[in-house]
Amino acid sequence: MKNLLLCVLVVSVSLTVDAQIEIPQPSPTTTIKQEVGLTDVTLEYSRPSMRGRTIFGDLVPYNVLWRTGANSNTKITFSQPVTVGGTELKAGSYAIYTKPGESSWDVYFYTDTNNWGTPQEWDDSKVAAMINVPSLEDAMTTETFTLSFDDLSNNGATLGIKWANTYVGVPFEVPTDKMVTSAIDKVMNGPGAGDYYAAAVYYYSSDKDINKSKAWMEKAMSMMKPQFWHYRQMSLIYAKAGDKNAAIDAAKKSLAGAEAAGNADYVKMNKDSLKEWGAM
């Protein structure tokens, strides 16, 4: 019995020790982050190696859907909408699937990124974009599967897929010009309502020039459809500027809006101020 218990203990200890041993993964994962124009793009994927095997047409069959890497989905994330093959992809994450061919590949951007490998059931409605691109022979052999961002410009880049002696480039466009043009137009047209409002509130709360705060608040209110919280700040600025009648008028508008919205906090704050200013 003692010998039996001793053997069980030895086996248990051995299993415990084995469970604590870490070994390298055959297809290690990697993450690449790249700024393309004003768009942040992130790639997350696993990297299998050739290890003497024939890759395309054998390990990776032609004209069969491939996970494009190893293990879980190869995933690409865009911080802004981008365009692939004339199709706009919304900002967000996509799984990259491919169907390698001898002369060209079909490349799919798939909205479901929670698959291990390829989906058990392919859903065409989840294909956000598909593009067919040439497959090029590469004179240099790439031992380990590699994704890269190539041909970077302000307006786009090429997602490079490289393994063995094959290179595939997937071009995509980013909305840099649209974003910069919009920013230029905004600046050149002067501050917006939000800018005037933020400046007014900051000057009020920081005990800076209250007359500037008042002027900016009036400008902001003239450029927007004011809500009850806007009128609340306006009433406080008027009161601090010594214009009690205008403060009371703004507080009453804030109170009415807060009551309509069922916002008890603003109802109480406005009633307290109106009592303080002798209007209730």
Rank of each mutant, 00 (worst) to 15 (best):
G190T: 14
G190Q: 14
P191C: 06
P191L: 14
P191H: 10
G192F: 04
G192H: 11
G192M: 06
G192C: 04
G192P: 01
G192I: 12
G192T: 13
A193M: 13
A193P: 11
A193G: 15
A193E: 13
A193V: 10
A193K: 12
G194K: 04
G194R: 08
G194T: 07
G194W: 08
D195H: 12
D195N: 13
D195I: 10
D195A: 13
Y196M: 01
Y196K: 06
Y197H: 13
Y197Q: 11
Y197P: 00
A198M: 15
A198F: 13
A198V: 13
A198G: 06
A198D: 13
A200L: 11
A200G: 05
A200S: 13
V201C: 02
V201W: 02
Y202F: 09
Y202N: 05
Y202W: 06
Y202M: 07
Y202I: 02
Y203P: 00
Y203M: 08
Y204K: 00
S205D: 15
S205H: 11
S205F: 07
S206W: 04
D207H: 10
D207P: 11
D207G: 01
D207I: 03
K208D: 12
K208Q: 14
D209I: 03
D209R: 01
D209A: 01
D209F: 01
D209C: 05
D209N: 09
I210Q: 05
N211M: 12
N211D: 15
N211E: 15
N211V: 08
N211F: 12
K212V: 10
K212N: 11
K212P: 01
S213N: 10
S213R: 03
K214E: 11
K214V: 11
A215Q: 14
A215N: 15
W216T: 02
W216G: 00
W216D: 03
W216C: 00
M217Y: 10
M217A: 05
E218Y: 07
E218R: 08
E218Q: 14
E218H: 04
E218C: 01
K219I: 01
K219E: 04
K219P: 06
K219F: 03
A220Y: 02
A220H: 04
A220N: 00
A220K: 03
M221G: 04
M221S: 04
M221A: 03
M221F: 09
S222M: 00
S222Q: 03
M223E: 10
M223G: 03
M224H: 06
M224L: 09
M224F: 06
K225D: 13
K225I: 07
P226W: 09
P226N: 04
P226E: 07
P226F: 10
Q227I: 09
Q227W: 13
Q227M: 11
F228T: 00
